[in-house]
Lab assay of single mutants.
Amino acid sequence: MDVFMKGLSKAKEGVVAAAEKTKQGVAEAAGKTKEGVLYVGSKTKEGVVHGVATVAEKTKEQVTNVGGAVVTGVTAVAQKTVEGAGSIAAATGFVKKDQLGKNEEGAPQEGILEDMPVDPDNEAYEMPSEEGYQDYEPEA
């Protein structure tokens, strides 16, 4: 019985440690998101679009440190934060509304985080759909 109880105690310690790591990862992701939003706020009209992409990228980098179902929630929060940063930029006159959601080359930025393969159960990952990809044929 002692062996059984000791095993359960060790398992509990492992769960607590994993929860603490997840909590730490979420806190880091939130900190990076805040950094990115402050970065966007300090940019001029020309830099705002690039700044919004930076927020998304920093958040995406930190999301990889967070495991399990938390990833889905962090990704949703990050996307809403990026959308909010863009709205703030438009409201303050840093950028025109028609410039939001495009990178410096004018290509749409939507789907940055949505296409990231995420499995809350950590069982399997699927690649994003290939609808947006084109076949590449090298020139002879």
Rank of each mutant, 00 (worst) to 15 (best):
M5A: 04
K96N: 13
K34F: 07
P117Q: 08
M127S: 11
T44I: 10
A29D: 00
A17I: 13
V70G: 01
V15Q: 00
E13R: 01
A107E: 12
V40C: 08
M116T: 05
V49D: 01
V3Y: 15
A18N: 00
V16T: 11
T75L: 10
K34D: 00
V40D: 00
T75K: 03
A91K: 10
M1D: 15
E61G: 08
A140D: 04
G7Q: 05
P117L: 06
A90S: 06
A69E: 02
P117T: 08
E13A: 13
T59P: 01
V15N: 00
K80G: 03
D135R: 03
V37L: 11
V66E: 01
A140V: 07
G31W: 01
E104N: 15
A11G: 02
V118T: 06
E57H: 07
K32F: 13
K43E: 00
G86T: 11
K21V: 13
G106F: 13
I88P: 03
V74W: 14
G14V: 14
A90P: 09
E105P: 07
K34H: 04
K43F: 14
K60M: 14
K58Q: 05
V95P: 12
Q62A: 11
G36H: 04
G31Q: 15
V63Y: 03
G73P: 02
M116Q: 03
E137V: 02
A124Q: 14
E126L: 13
T54R: 04
E114R: 10
G7L: 02
T33F: 15
K34M: 00
G68D: 13
Y125L: 13
S129E: 07
D119F: 00
N65S: 11
V70M: 13
E114C: 05
M127L: 10
K6Y: 15
E139S: 04
K10M: 15
K96P: 05
L113F: 07
V95S: 04
G111M: 02
D98K: 10
V16P: 00
E137R: 10
V82F: 03
A17C: 08
K12Y: 15
V66K: 02
Y125Q: 13
F94L: 09
A30N: 00
E83W: 13
V16D: 01
L8P: 00
A56P: 01
D98C: 07
K102L: 14
V71H: 04
Q62E: 02
V26W: 09
T44K: 01
I88Q: 03
D121I: 05
E123S: 03
Y133I: 09
Q99C: 09
Q24E: 06
V49T: 04
E123K: 07
G25A: 05
P138M: 10
I88V: 07
V63C: 10
G31D: 02
V63N: 01
V3T: 15
T54Y: 09
K12I: 14
V66H: 02
K21P: 00
G51H: 06
Q99R: 02
Y39H: 08
T44N: 01
F94N: 03
P138V: 05
T92A: 08
M116E: 08
V55R: 01
K34W: 12
V55N: 00
L113W: 07
G68E: 11
V26M: 02
G84Q: 14
T33H: 01
V26F: 04
G51K: 11
G84M: 07
K60F: 11
G7C: 07
E114A: 12
Q62H: 09
P138G: 09
G84K: 10
F4D: 00
A69T: 02
D98V: 02
V77C: 04
V52K: 01
K10V: 08
G7F: 14
G36R: 04
Y125D: 13
E28K: 09
E105W: 00
V82Y: 09
V95W: 11
A29F: 15
A17F: 10
S42N: 09
E35Q: 14
Y136Q: 05
G47S: 10
G67C: 12
P138C: 04
E13W: 06
N65A: 11
N103K: 12
T54W: 14
V40W: 15
V55D: 00
E20T: 09
G93Q: 15
G86Q: 10
L113M: 07
V74M: 11
E13H: 04
V77A: 06
G36W: 09
D2S: 06
A85H: 04
G67I: 11
G132W: 08
K23M: 09
A85W: 08
P138Q: 08
E104Q: 11
G106K: 08
S129Y: 11
K32H: 10
V118F: 12
G73V: 09
G93D: 02
V71Y: 15
E105C: 01
A69C: 05
G68I: 08
V48P: 00
K23F: 15
E61K: 10
A107F: 13
K60H: 13
G47P: 02
T54Q: 07
E46Y: 09
T59H: 01
D135T: 04
S9G: 07
E61D: 07
A76N: 08
D2G: 15
V3I: 13
T64Y: 14
V77R: 03
Y125K: 08
V3W: 15
I112H: 03
D119M: 07
A27H: 06
G14S: 06
K32M: 14
G36K: 12
P108G: 00
E114W: 14
M5Q: 15
A19E: 00
G73S: 02
E139I: 09
Q24A: 12
E20L: 11
T75Y: 12
A27L: 08
A124I: 13
A89N: 03
A17S: 06
G47Q: 08
G7E: 14
E104G: 04
N122K: 05
E139K: 03
K45D: 00
K102D: 12
P138N: 09
G25K: 12
V48K: 00
G14F: 14
G86K: 10
A85S: 06
S42Q: 13
A19F: 09
T72H: 09
Q62N: 12
K102G: 05
E139W: 08
T75G: 08
A27P: 00
T54V: 14
K60W: 04
E20D: 06
V82W: 09
V74H: 01
G36V: 07
G86F: 11
Y133A: 08
V48W: 13
G67H: 12
E123R: 04
Q24D: 07
A124H: 06
K32P: 00
E110Q: 03
V40N: 00
T44G: 03
A56T: 05
Y125N: 15
K60A: 04
V48T: 01
A69S: 03
K97Y: 13
K21E: 00
V16N: 02
G84C: 12
G25R: 13
E131T: 09
Q134K: 10
G7Y: 15
D121G: 10
A78H: 03
M5H: 15
V63G: 02
V52T: 03
E61N: 05
T44F: 06
A30V: 11
K6A: 15
K43R: 11
D2R: 07
E131Y: 01
E130C: 06
G84P: 01
G67N: 02
S9E: 13
K45I: 15
E126F: 14
V77W: 09
Y136K: 09
Q109R: 09
A19I: 15
A85D: 04
Y39M: 08
E114T: 02
E46P: 02
E110D: 04
E83P: 03
G41R: 10
H50A: 13
Q109M: 11
T81F: 14
A78T: 08
Y136I: 12
K6M: 14
A17T: 06
G31T: 06
L8N: 00
D115A: 11
G25D: 03
E20R: 11
G86A: 05
T92L: 13
Q134A: 12
K97Q: 04
A107R: 08
G25Y: 13
V82P: 02
E126W: 12
K97H: 07
Q24V: 11
Y125I: 06
E28D: 13
K80N: 04
E123N: 03
M5F: 11
P108I: 01
G106P: 06
V77S: 04
K96R: 04
K43P: 00
V82E: 02
G67W: 12
G86S: 06
M127D: 02
K96W: 12
E104T: 07
V37F: 05
G73Q: 10
T33I: 15
V3F: 14
S9A: 13
A11D: 00
N122D: 12
V40K: 00
